[in-house]
Design a protein around this nucleic acid. Structure first.
Length: 322
DNA sequence: AAAATCCGCAACCGCACGCTA
DNA sequence: GTAGCGTGCGGTTGCGGATTT
């Protein structure tokens, strides 16, 4: 079954309306009312489908449409109603005289949503986005770590490079676990790929100066760049490679940063000086496939996003891999 | 100054639903 | 009960102007 599209006939015009078409539509509706939208185009002498005419009228030509910028009051109303109604644009529009659902939807997508994200508020739940922002400093550390490895590998011997790479691998795993735990604590249906775009960080020098780009690439893109081998991380984490070798070494990593430092998305943020942390392991040992979550033998020690938020880079990789 | 990129918005698309014959 | 019509709705697309490189 299913009805055929109203405008699948060939030859009907699509795309932007001309002033002449607008005039024909206005004059016809003012004289006769719109009546049947399907019949209207023929009667009005328009080479358009009825649906196109209806949209043009309701979204643009209707005489009671208020155009121009949204006022503060209107903005507050939209925010309030959206927190109650979600993406029910027509229901929201019903409370804003002179505004169309399409106009409100566009305003939301281009302004209000971004504004909420900048304020650290999840635009869908209207609640603070602690999960995402708690993860951001980890992302910076990972990006920095990778940056150091990429930029300095020529200065290190093979063993050193391998230790750094191993540590990076562990850090990646912990970071992903952090994100997954954060998500799972708020939502049992983990799906990072569908989350809203988040601020991203670019590193342009070493030591790094990070510029915060509020929207592109998204955090998810950033994660997949930094953790290219973990491209599919819905559900459970992939195991670390069996070749992972833990050794005792000292790494330079970024110290803790306040999330508020990252809130000024338009600015360039100079990161604090690098500090050292210890990573311990058994030199030369193959540590097998570690388990995640710290339970039982093997695997990382207990992991708590909240603790890491307090002191995000006090990593202590006391692994007991055997 | 030209090219590339970003961004806002009008318009389109396809589905859902109520109504009627 | 079913088919078709009219309309509403939310998501998506793509054009064109603005901004950046």
């Amino acid at each position: 079954m299913g009805r055929s599209p109203c405008c699948d006939e060939n030859g009907l015009k699509k795309g932007p309306w001309t002033p002449e078409e607008d005039q024909k539509l206005i004059q016809y509706i003012q004289k006769h009312g719109h009546g049947s939208w399907r019949a209207l185009p023929k009667l009005a002498g328009l080479n358009r489908c009825g649906k196109s005419c209806r949209l043009r009228w309701t979204n643009y030509l209707r005489p009671d449409i208020k155009r121009g910028k949204f006022s503060q009051d209107e903005e507050q109303t939209i925010l309030h109603l959206h927190s109650i109604l979600g993406n029910k644009w027509s229901a929201i529009a019903a409370n804003l005289p002179g505004r169309t659902d399409n106009e409100i939807k566009n305003f939301w997508n281009t302004h209000l949503k971004k504004k909420l994200i900048h304020m650290g508020i999840d635009p869908m739940t209207h609640r603070p986005r602690t999960d995402i922002f708690a993860s951001l400093p980890h992302l910076i550390a990972l990006a920095n770590l990778k940056n150091m490895i990429d930029n300095n590998h020529h200065q290190w011997d093979d063993h050193g490079v391998r230790m750094q790479a191993d540590a990076l691998q562990v850090a990646k795993a912990q970071y992903l676990q952090c994100i997954l735990q954060s998500f799972s604590s708020n939502n049992n249906n983990i799906n990072i790929n569908t989350s809203v775009p988040s601020p991203a960080v670019h590193f342009e020098s070493n030591p790094p100066i990070a510029t915060i780009d509020p929207y592109q690439p998204s955090m998810e893109e950033m994660i997949s760049q930094q953790c290219s081998e973990f491209t599919a991380f819905e559900g459970t984490l992939p195991p670390l490679p069996k070749s992972t070798v833990m050794t005792t070494t000292t790494m330079t990593m970024l110290p803790p940063m306040m999330v508020s430092d990252l809130a000024h998305h338009d600015d360039t943020v100079s990161l604090p000086p690098l500090t050292e942390v210890s990573i311990e392991g058994n030199p030369g040992e193959d540590c097998g496939t570690p388990s995640y979550g710290g339970g039982g033998g093997g695997g990382f020690s207990g992991f708590c996003p909240e603790l890491l938020l307090d002191d995000p880079f006090n990593y202590d990789f006391h692994s007991n891999f055997n």
